[in-house]
Design a binder for these strands. Structure first.
Length: 470
RNA sequence: GCCACUAUAGUCUAGAGGUUAGGACGUUGGCCUCUCACGCCGAAGACCCGGGUUCGAUUCCCGGUGGUGGUGCCA
């Protein structure tokens, strides 16, 4: 049975990169009929963020990534929060101490800092050579200490990664890293191994930042007599060629994009494509299709740059295929924010807008004419292609009002054009500008009248008449 | 500094020892049209550099360069 996991630290938001890692782990598990587990890695007590776990859970839920085991829902391998598993790590740390694969280290931070200042690139194994007796005495005396992993001083380690192939690391480039901190909490380097094994994780899907330290984890699996998982390392999602997407720059949170008016699945669909390709030219995929097509062979070995423009395009595809009702429901909160209490047919506005917005916040721009009418710019009547002028508008405004007030406005406007010896487009242009005061509107004059209602349309036209001084 | 990973248009990517190097976003020309958008039809735009292997390398190998990552009592 395939078991994968997403193991975020509770930072208070769901990072886009983390979301993609979670997505791949989820897709891989589901594709293989396996289980997807959520585990919270909160061993750094200095980084506690209140409510962070709930935020991650709710974000994953919105994204359509549902975990089989984890906080709240539980499971047979819990607890799923590392801070609640402290005793477990300690137990295995002791085992490693006994087998000589780990040792207690009493070195002060000052000594460590001094070593680095002198050019040392890694810990010198100073405490490895302490006698058993001395170690016991110092612990009994209450001296603070950490437990370090005892890495071989020479030799190389090769392991297989599903996307990078065989990876070889020289032991001399690896440090005797800390397994248990002086506060008794494990570090990631230790906890991830213990938990992945105890939770039965078969495929370890995580960022490339662990590619080089994986041999250390393998050493731990070996020392404990455990089977190593299959490794699948993922390159990061970048903001540009030299920076990762980061919360600091405000471009990294899943929820941020939701607030910008992106649909959850459009985001998921888009990031699925960053670093993975489905081997065909269809880019728009439902969760079921993603699950069906997902494969580690399609995973990219290089990092990829996040392109919000392309995500907008994908989002627009999803917006267009929404039912009119769904789109209207989704748009309503934005109307309330941007154009509350207008005397217009909001339902009809939705119809006009649906093919014209890529993300929901585009509504603000696309229907700005609803608010902007107060600052009417009469120069808008001037159109090069149609050769319309402000004077022409002045001349036609009364007739436009009259035509708008008939039962068949379109016919009336056509007749008006004929009568004046003008092209229909010229009249329509002037009419629409007079109605909206906007060069671009989500529909023509007729649609605008339908949107406003005849009374409001006439009110607007009469106002423009005053502005024109006609 | 040392170590690791990586490299096809602006971006995401496909691809094979010999291809007109394919697709998508974006850009751009046109059509449609009272504007915008949608839709449709076109266009421009790429194999990081240097060696080697080979009849032939963008593809394989080595080196360089660029980028990223690791080198934490962070994960």
């Amino acid at each position: 049975m395939v078991r994968t996991r997403f193991a975020p630290s509770p930072t208070g938001y769901l990072h886009i990169g983390g979301l993609r890692t979670a997505l791949y782990a989820y897709l891989f598990a589901k594709k293989n009929g396996g289980k997807f587990i959520l585990r919270i890695e909160d061993t750094d007590q200095n980084r506690e963020v209140a409510g962070a776990v709930d935020i991650i859970i709710s974000a994953l839920d919105k994204a359509g990534i549902h975990y089989d085991e984890g906080p709240i829902v539980g499971g047979d391998y819990g607890p799923y929060v590392q801070s609640e598993r402290k005793e477990i790590y300690l137990k295995y740390a002791k085992q490693l101490l006994e087998s000589g694969d780990a040792y207690c280290c009493f070195c002060s931070k000052e000594r460590l800092a001094e070593m680095h200042e002198k050019g040392a690139t890694k810990y010198d194994k100073h405490c490895l050579h302490l006698s058993k007796q001395e170690v016991q005495e110092r612990i009994a005396r209450g001296e603070p200490y950490v437990i370090r992993q005892n890495i071989p001083e020479s030799g190389t380690h090769t392991y297989h990664d599903e996307v990078f192939g065989d990876v070889t690391v020289d032991y001399k480039d690896l440090e005797d890293n800390i397994l248990i901190k002086s506060d008794g909490m494990p570090t990631y380097n230790f906890a991830n191994v213990i938990d992945d094994h105890l939770m039965g994780i078969t495929h370890c899907i995580r960022g490339v930042e662990y590619l080089m330290s994986t041999p250390k984890y393998n050493l731990l699996y070996d020392a404990l007599g455990w089977e190593r998982p299959v490794y699948i390392h993922l390159q990061p999602i970048m903001r540009d060629s030299q920076h990762k997407l980061s919360k600091r720059d405000g471009d990294a949170g899943f929820e941020d994009f939701l607030r910008k008016g992106f649909l959850p699945h459009a985001i998921v669909n888009y990031i699925a494509l960053l670093g993975w390709n489905p081997k065909d030219n269809n880019e728009k995929m439902s969760m079921a299709e993603l699950t069906d097509k997902f494969s580690i062979e399609g995973l990219q070995k290089s990092s990829s740059i996040f392109d919000e423009t392309k995500m907008r395009w994908l989002n627009s595809l999803y917006v267009k295929e929404m039912s009119a009702e769904d789109f209207h429901a989704a748009a309503l909160p934005y109307y309330n924010e941007y154009y509350p209490n207008k005397d217009i047919d909001y339902k009809y506005l939705s119809e006009l807008l649906q093919s014209r917005v890529e993300i929901l916040t585009d509504i603000k721009e696309r229907a700005a004419f609803l608010n902007a009418f107060d600052n009417f710019d009469i120069e808008l009547f001037v159109n090069k292609k149609w050769k319309t002028t402000v004077d022409m508008a002045r001349e036609l405004i009364d007739d436009c009002i009259a035509a708008t007030d008939t039962d068949d406005m379109n016919a009336a406007l056509e007749q008006l054009a004929e009568r004046k010896g003008l092209k229909k487009g010229q009249v329509l242009w002037i009419h629409r500008i007079a109605l909206t005061g906007a060069a671009a509107t989500p529909g023509g004059g007729a649609e605008m009248v339908k949107l406003f209602g005849k009374a409001e349309a006439l009110r607007r036209l009469n106002e423009v008449k005053k502005i024109l001084g006609a």
